[in-house]
């Protein structure tokens, strides 16, 4: 196959969740679910074979983006990255996610690629996934036999692997409700602006004045999955996040990541800049609060 010709498959269009589950149960690992389909089609042009593809495009009501201050942000399975960018709620209450959506891929891909699809792709370089991980939330998985909510912390289980079982559909992401004392930001390093990340970072900080009482630090492109930087979190928790504290954290970051050489960069380089970029991401989150 080539970038000009897709592999062959039967395309199935369920009109309801129960039809979708039937298809998943019937075909198991011989069916690939596609929402936006952008990642999947690229993979198919590179030779990925799947006898069946199941498009969610005719399922009603899954393209929502709804916000409730108590419940948080609910993102439906077919909601696109562009919808995140168009949302003033996301911009104000989930800045890390908005900043990630801003640099994600290209405008054309933003119009089609879905937030949940990006999460399910489970790339350790996923920009929006990185932000979502830092912000925290739950993924709602539904199957014929019921439903369960999986904490984002437990969602990515390995390289390109998630907690979703083959008979389940991921139908919604629910981001934790925002708080006025919670700040977040996202940054990434690339070769040119429009690019897959060499390194990306998302931070979510719970502040009490100048002191950070709790925080979630997530770094991508430095391990088989997106990484929570637990050690660095422990070091900064309860501290005032001034220049000294952040400078001291740089060494800790380097200790807890396992970056490799790949087409975009080297392990050595990533290890050198990871701490600096974390520091800058935290500074960016703190700056935004002053506006």
């Amino acid at each position: 196959m080539s970038s000009r010709v897709l592999t062959e498959f039967d395309l199935l269009f369920p009109h309801s969740l129960s039809e979708a589950w039937k298809i998943l149960n019937q075909h198991g690992d011989r069916v690939t679910t596609i929402a936006g389909g952008t990642d999947t089609l690229v993979a198919m042009k590179a030779g990925y074979n799947t006898p069946y593809a199941m498009s969610l495009s005719r399922l009603p009501d899954l393209d929502y983006l709804t916000f409730d201050p108590e419940e948080g942000l609910r993102v439906g399975a077919r909601a696109t990255i562009a919808q995140l960018l168009d949302s003033s709620v996301v911009k104000e209450c989930y800045p890390a996610l908005w900043q990630a959506a801003k640099v994600f891929a290209t405008p054309q891909l933003k119009n089609v690629a879905t937030v949940l699809g990006n999460m399910l792709r489970a790339s350790p370089a996923g920009d929006c996934s990185c932000a979502i991980y830092a912000l925290g939330g739950k993924v709602l998985l539904k199957s014929e036999s019921g439903q369960r909510r999986v904490n984002v912390d437990d969602f990515w289980t390995g390289y390109s692997q998630t907690a979703r079982q083959p008979n389940e559909l991921a139908v919604e992401l629910q981001l934790s409700p925002p708080a006025t004392n919670r700040l977040s930001a996202f940054k990434r390093l690339t070769r040119v602006n429009e690019d897959l990340a060499k390194l990306n970072i998302a931070v979510s900080l719970t502040m009490d004045g100048d002191t950070c009482t709790d925080l979630r630090l997530v770094m991508g492109c430095v391990g088989p999955t997106l990484l929570r930087l637990h050690k660095t979190e422990d070091q900064l928790r309860g501290k005032v996040l001034d220049k000294h504290a952040l400078q001291a954290a740089i060494a800790t970051v380097a200790e807890e990541i396992t970056p490799i050489d790949d087409k975009r960069s080297t392990g050595a380089y990533r290890r050198k800049v990871a701490g600096v970029y974390l520091k800058r991401t935290i500074e960016q989150a703190l700056e935004c609060s002053e506006q």
Binding site: G37, L41, N111
Partner: peptide, 23 residues
């Protein structure tokens, strides 16, 4: 593969998409 944009068309009025990655 959705990178060069030469296949860009508009859907539903004014949303740009890549025709090469649309079924």
């Amino acid at each position: 593969t959705g990178e060069c944009g030469a296949c860009t068309v508009l859907i539903d009025g004014d949303k740009a998409i890549n025709a090469c990655l649309t079924l």
